[in-house]
């Protein structure tokens, strides 16, 4: 643990030190740059308020992510089983990544109103792509020899999918999930910026407008912690779901 994360921790502490140093200079306005100590102070002082809003953002993130996982997995499997569908949908899927989701957020608010709907839509849309594309690549990269073997053993198409292709593409699915988990929080914040009554993203935006710079920093720290926690949770789930990878077996 110390060996793995020690150097990163040292670098982070050095950056925090430098930040504290710059923020303490007389020339730097407190409203422009809050120091780490001030941010920590805000974290302590506004703890209840921050936590209430963090909870709302976390729920939006997790629900959006869940929608993306279910939708992405179904889409990937459907595209894998139906070749014409894959040929038709894959280029569109890639092209959809060129759409700046930030500008879509206000449109979703128009369409779905101020509730949780537009936030879920944004999170799910951002997470859908990495999950679908990674799982599809995983399904496609199963060795042809294994597919032949299953055919020879008399397995049906769905049996091959269930017993060989899906388990073999779990590592790919988890790579997609790791990317999705790290961007999902950003999606929730975008959604809240476009219009919301609560949430960490809204709190940060409001704090910025009201020149409560330390609170903004405290919110950013919490959002980062949230994304890191999601990433760690996915990694733990992968270790549990793909134990054979530790033996270095071929897929």
């Amino acid at each position: 643990m110390v060996r793995r994360f020690g150097p990163s921790l040292a670098l982070l502490l050095a950056a925090l030190g430098a930040w504290q140093g710059v923020a303490s200079l007389a020339a730097v306005d407190d409203l422009t740059l809050a120091s780490p100590l001030e941010a920590a102070g805000a974290l302590r002082a506004d703890w209840t308020l921050l936590m209430e809003n963090a909870w709302i953002t976390l729920v939006e993130t997790l629900l959006g992510l869940a929608i993306a996982v279910v939708g992405g997995a179904l889409a990937a499997v459907a595209m894998h089983l139906v070749r014409p569908l894959r040929d038709a949908a894959y280029p569109l899927l890639v092209a959809s990544q060129a759409i700046p989701l930030v500008v879509l957020a206000p449109l979703f608010v128009l369409a779905f109103d101020y509730g949780i709907g537009p936030k879920l839509a944004i999170v799910a849309l951002i997470c859908f792509f990495p999950i679908t594309v990674n799982l599809l690549d995983g399904l496609r990269s199963v060795e042809p020899e294994l597919i032949k073997l299953m055919r020879s053993l008399g397995a049906s198409r769905l049996m091959t999918l269930r017993k060989v292709e899906l388990p073999a593409s779990l590592p790919s699915l988890f790579s997609g999930l790791r990317v999705a988990a790290s961007v999902s929080v950003i999606g929730a914040v975008f959604g809240e910026w476009a219009g919301a009554e609560a949430g960490l993203g809204r709190l940060v935006l409001l704090g910025n407008n009201q020149l409560q710079t330390p609170r903004v920093y405290a919110g950013v720290v919490l959002l980062t912690v949230m994304a890191l926690a999601l990433f760690a949770a996915v990694s733990l789930a992968e270790r549990a779901a793909v134990p054979w990878k530790r033996h270095g077996g071929a897929t």
Binding site: K148, L149, K163, V164
Partner: peptide, 12 residues
């Protein structure tokens, strides 16, 4: 019954 060149064992 076909036995492929590589063992084709499923690692899981």
């Amino acid at each position: 019954a076909y036995m492929p060149q590589r063992d084709g064992l499923l690692p899981w």
